[in-house]
Every structure is written in structure tokens, then in C-alpha cells.
Write a protein that binds this DNA or RNA. Structure first.
Lengths: 349, 349
DNA sequence: GATATGAGCGAGAGCGCTCTCTTAGCCAGC
DNA sequence: GCTGGCTAAGAGAGCGCTCTCGCTCATATC
């Protein structure tokens, strides 16, 4: 294990990053008190706390995470907890949503010394996973696809937690306007002339899936078109099967709203397998604007979800600390029009 | 490829993770000597080195990265250097290759306290980026899409470097059998009856692209079929344009080998836009087995590249240290048959 | 044989922080 | 006033490692 670095470099020898010692001296207190003040530990007066905070700010003090980890025996990590059905890491490469989450978290962690640690658990052993991660959490955790009861369980053990798109009472959350987005998506189909609009929803236990379902129901109610729907599992296979079944039972369908691009890619396979053309016979709108949307043939109109920004916001909130349980942030989603609803769309958007 | 971490933190309080002190005592040497021995620093005899290594192994010693970072003043990070045209981090979510690289590196880093740090640079400022990263490198760097001269430049400044799929004399490398893979892919087209096989190659400066080109040329030479080829940029747009041009100039083409799935997805768009059917009129084989292959319509036959495993191997080599410049590891690629060459293929593979 | 050389190794001083132990200071209660 | 209790704050001992310095001893040089 080689690790020595030739110590060329460091042209500016006069500059030294401020340490807690510097802060303490400047504030006229001891190291211990400065540490207590900055870490919100009991044993420091409000006055001292304020003075230390001020000095730390003017000095631009940033605690050395290595020293902190060594002294406390705890590493500084942000945990990403994903409850999933596939314990294999290779989903990162094949599941466009998670890779975007990771990208966003990494960009938020950029420049800090905080780690990103990923935990994937099967739904079956999820409670245990939650307990383990919550117990050893340091900076905090971002929860993806974790059911509300487990999110609350996590929060009881460790309050530094943000849920991504899965609401659970009292758990801080970053969410996207799924309902409004689905309403817009289905509205788009209606606007281009579809009157027999079918939908393929995600698993109903999934919060995004039910919000999108609500948006869909909202629009078909307002527009007065029938509710034709099937469920998939947010994966390609599910989209394929649901679309095949839908087309068999409702051959008159002229528009299809699919709750995720990955499912939509599968649905496209099923649709073209029946000889129908997209968008001439059936227009299709997906959701997410993941790579699946642009690789599908034809490219899919979809609702763009700012996943990277959302994950980065969740991570930053954790990093900043002081996260009231009412904390939340909502991101808009945006319609992207491609050839699956608009034959005149440019080949590449 | 497992994901979950949790190797620290056993509830057994009597158990203490072995420290360098334990190793030193057991080996009958001082801490300093143990450190020297394990870090390949000069000043320890071969005998001592071996003894320390053995004790460390039997004790299951794992250095505490926090302590190491604190003592040495360096953080332990593995750098991923990507030279690209898009400085925006969001490519991670949309470029299937890089997300798989990251997945693989993360799995190798799993359980250690080593960071993954990503550097993306434009080709224009690449030399500067290389210098910066090499100077502050700790564990080492994995280079993706870094031209040979820059890889060598990096190595001169920091020998702890592995190139992914881009050979540069004397730089350790992890590569895949691109040439053999392309040969197999084109052979597959030939075997199913294609005789007018066109190819869309990646940018010739890219090593993977030229290896795959060599494999393509090899097979068409052996099979005695004409060389019909165009170039794309490894991106969807390039694949689209190249395919459109190819079909216009060579309408007789009945098979298409595309050097990346992303380009192939674009090519599929161009092919179906002309009214041709896949695979009946033209069979298509891609390369990579990325998500683009399965989202394309029809799903693409392709050569599976074990990107995650390759990236993990590169990272592990860095972590283990002691990387002779002749170090290299080669991974095979495997033909995956889907509907773009075989109409009888199952809808999902 | 005396001296220089250098390789192998140990002692020990930190790295920047956390956390326990201890002390100083203050007020309530008898 | 004295004791007890309680809070604010300081002193100091590490956390596990790296790295400099200096010592020892074998080998090379004159």
C-alpha cells in the first residue's frame, strides 16, 4: 500500500488552515469549550457559543474531518439508504434514477471530506438495515424508496435524515411536483387530441407512483375521459406487460401515460410489437427524463425530474445540519416534448 | 458485486480492531518499522517486510484511514479523472458508461474509508487538470478517456495511476477485449447471413474505438465482405447521423455494427426513420451492453463489457498499492443476443 | 585498523480533534 | 456561614497513524 507523496508543492508556506486551537485562542476560551460550543454540546453558555461561532465564521474555520473521526471514533459519512428488490450493485449502472441520485449527492459532497456510503437492502430485511444505519449514522442519511413507517423509525433513532420523494409525517423531505407533473403530462396527451388515454402506474406502495396516479386521475376527471389503467413495477418488464395487457383489453387506446421512462421503454416495445405506430396510433408520455426516454424508439416525450438537484439539496441540508422535522423542499417538473407525441419534433432534443 | 458496507461496528465490546501497534508488537518490531514495511517505504529489510505482512494478514489488520489522513495531512481519496466535453456533472446520470465506472469504483471502495473524488475536465484544459490532480493525489487515480500523452504525464508526477481502456506505454491498465469483441460482434452478423455489413466507429482518437475498428476490419477481411463505415462520436447524435449517411450512400446494407450502444440507439432511430425494419432489413449489433441497449427498440444485441468489474479491479489495484508500471488486467467481453439480430429472441433478456 | 557510508530500526513528537476529569464560581438551603 | 449541588470552563489524555531524528551495526574505503 503505497501512499507517500513527494512533497514538492505548497508554495505558500505562511498560510495555515485555522484549527480549533486558533478559534479557541481568538475567542478567549479553551479548545474543549470551543468544541462544545460548535458541536451544540451542553456545557457552554449562550454568550460563549455566540462568540465562538462568530470567531469561527470570521476565521473561516472548517473542522478537520480526519481528526474528528480519529478522536471520536466516528467517520463522517452521508448514508444513502435504498430499499430495493435487487441487492446487486450493478443496478447503479442500469437504473437511471439511482445513478442520478448518486451524481447529485456527489456534487453536493464535492470539496468536503464527507463520504458517501450506500446501503441497499431488500424490503424483507429493511427494518434491520434501518436500525443499523441509524445507529451508526454521522452526518445523516438520505432515504430513497424507504416506506414511511421505516423512515419514521429511522428518524426516531437518528433525526438527521431526509427522505427523497417519499413523504412520511415529520420526516424532512425533498420532493418533486409529481401530481402536477402527471396532470401536465396527461393534459399534453389530451391537448394533442387523445381521447382514450390509458395509464401505466408504478407500484401503489411507492409514493411517487401514487402522486402521479393522482395527477392522472385529476386530469381525466377534469377532461371527462375514461380511466383505463394498469400497473407495472417501475421497470421495463412491467411496462411491457402492462402495455400488452392494456392494448389487448382496450384496442381503442390512442394515448398512453407511463409513470416512468423505464416502463415506457418497455411499453414502447409492446406497442410496436402489435404493429401500432407511435405517435400516429398511440402517443406516449413518460416520466423522469432519464436516458431511457431518449434511447427509446421513438424518443419519448416526458416530464423532466431534476433528480440531481433534488439529491444535492437533500445532501446539503444534511451537511448544514440543524434540520427541523418540518424541513422540506419541492422541485417543479417540466414537460419535454419529443417524437412520441409530436411527429414534427426534432430528431434530437 | 455487493453493495452493503457495515463491516465496522460489531456489538462485541471485548473485540478491538487491531492497530499498527498490535501488528508491530506481534512482529517484534517498532511501530515505525511496521509502518515502513506496510507502506513500501525504504528502510525496512525484506525479511522484516515479509514478517510484518504476514502478521498483518493473520491479524486482519486494516489501517485506520482517519488516523493516517490526520498524521500525514493527506486525505485518502481515489481520483477518477475523466476528460470529456461536458463539464456538467449531470452526465453521470445520462452516460451509462461513466455511471457504471462509478458503481464499480464504489464497490471496490466499499468498507474502506477512502473517498471517490471525481474530476471532469475539458480536453482543452486537460493538461492542467492532470497536473493538479497528480500533485494532490493520495491513493491514486483512475483515468478514463485520458489521451496517452496525458496519462504518461500523470504517471511522471504520480505513479499510482491506472488507465481504463486507454493504453499508454508504461501506464498500468485495465482493459477489455475490444478487438476480439468487435470481431465476435461482426462475426455474429455474418453468421446470421449479413453480407453487406456496415460499421459505425467511435472517434479514432479513442483507444476503444480503434480497437473495435480493428476487430471489425479483421472480420470483414477474413469473411471477405466490403468495408463500409462511418464515424460517430460515441454519442446518440453521432450514431444517428452516421447511420443516416450510411443508408443514403449504401442502401444495400443488411447488417450494422455500432461501436457503442448509445450510438446504436441513435442509429436505430435513423434506420427506422427510413422505413427499414430491424432485424429483417438490417440487423444491428451494439457494444457495451449499457441500458441504452435494452431501452432501444428493438432491444439491441450487443457485446457485454464488464465495466463495473473493470473499474473495481482498477480501484483495488490502487488500494493495494505496489503497482508496477507493467501491471495490466484484461477482461473478456461477451455476446448478448437480443431482437436486433434475432427476431425470435425473448422480449426480455 | 580507523573512518566514512548507509541501511535498518526505534523513540518520540506530533496531526486536530473529542471527551473525561477536574476545578472555579455561583446560588439555594439549613 | 457552611455545605451541597449545579453549571461553565479548562487541563490533559488520548485516537492510530506518519515521519523526523538519531542510534546501531555491517560493509566499503583509505
Amino acid at each position: 500500500m503505497t501512499l507517500v507523496v513527494d512533497d514538492d508543492c505548497e508554495p505558500d508556506m505562511s498560510y495555515r488552515k485555522p484549527t480549533i486551537e486558533d478559534v479557541a485562542r481568538e475567542a478567549g476560551v479553551s479548545r474543549a469549550t470551543a468544541s462544545r460550543a460548535m458541536n451544540n454540546m451542553p456545557g457552554a453558555s449562550g454568550l460563549t457559543r455566540a462568540r465562538v461561532a462568530e470567531v469561527a465564521a470570521t476565521l473561516g474555520y472548517r473542522p478537520n474531518q480526519a481528526a474528528r473521526a480519529l478522536a471520536s471514533g466516528r467517520r463522517m459519512v452521508v448514508d444513502l439508504v435504498v430499499v430495493n428488490y435487487d441487492p446487486d450493485l450493478s443496478w447503479i449502472g442500469s437504473h437511471p434514477y439511482f445513478s442520478r441520485v448518486i451524481a447529485g449527492m456527489m456534487s453536493a459532497l464535492d470539496g468536503s471530506t464527507v463520504h458517501l456510503q450506500i446501503h441497499v437492502g431488500l424490503m424483507a430485511g429493511a427494518a434491520e438495515l434501518i436500525d443499523t444505519v441509524a445507529r451508526q449514522a454521522t452526518v445523516g442519511a438520505v432515504l430513497v424508496n424507504v416506506p414511511p413507517d421505516l423512515a419514521i423509525r429511522f428518524q426516531r433513532r437518528c433525526p438527521r435524515v431526509v427522505s427523497l420523494n417519499t413523504p412520511a409525517s415529520s420526516v424532512p423531505i425533498v420532493e418533486s411536483e409529481n401530481t402536477a407533473g402527471a396532470y401536465t403530462a396527461v393534459g399534453h396527451l389530451h391537448q394533442i387530441g387523445c381521447r382514450r388515454i390509458a395509464a401505466i402506474h408504478g407500484p401503489s406502495i411507492n409514493a411517487c407512483a401514487s402522486s402521479r396516479r393522482a395527477g392522472h386521475l385529476g386530469l381525466i376527471g377534469d377532461a371527462g375521459v375514461p380511466d383505463i389503467a394498469a400497473g407495472g413495477g417501475f421497470l421495463r418488464e412491467g411496462g411491457y406487460r402492462a402495455a400488452a395487457q392494456l392494448l389487448a383489453q382496450h384496442p381503442e387506446v390512442d394515448g398512453l401515460f407511463v409513470s416512468s421512462d423505464l416502463m415506457a421503454a418497455g411499453a414502447v416495445h409492446a406497442i410496436t410489437a402489435t404493429g401500432r405506430r407511435i405517435p400516429d396510433d398511440i402517443a406516449v408520455v413518460g416520466f423522469d427524463d432519464s436516458i431511457a426516454a431518449v434511447c427509446a424508439n421513438p424518443p419519448l416525450s416526458t416530464m423532466r425530474l431534476p433528480v440531481e438537484e433534488m439529491a444535492a439539496a437533500a445532501t446539503k441540508a444534511l451537511l448544514d445540519g440543524d434540520l427541523p422535522s418540518s424541513w422540506q423542499k419541492t422541485f417543479p417538473v417540466q414537460l419535454i416534448t419529443r417524437q412520441s407525441t409530436d411527429p414534427t419534433a426534432a430528431a434530437y432534443t
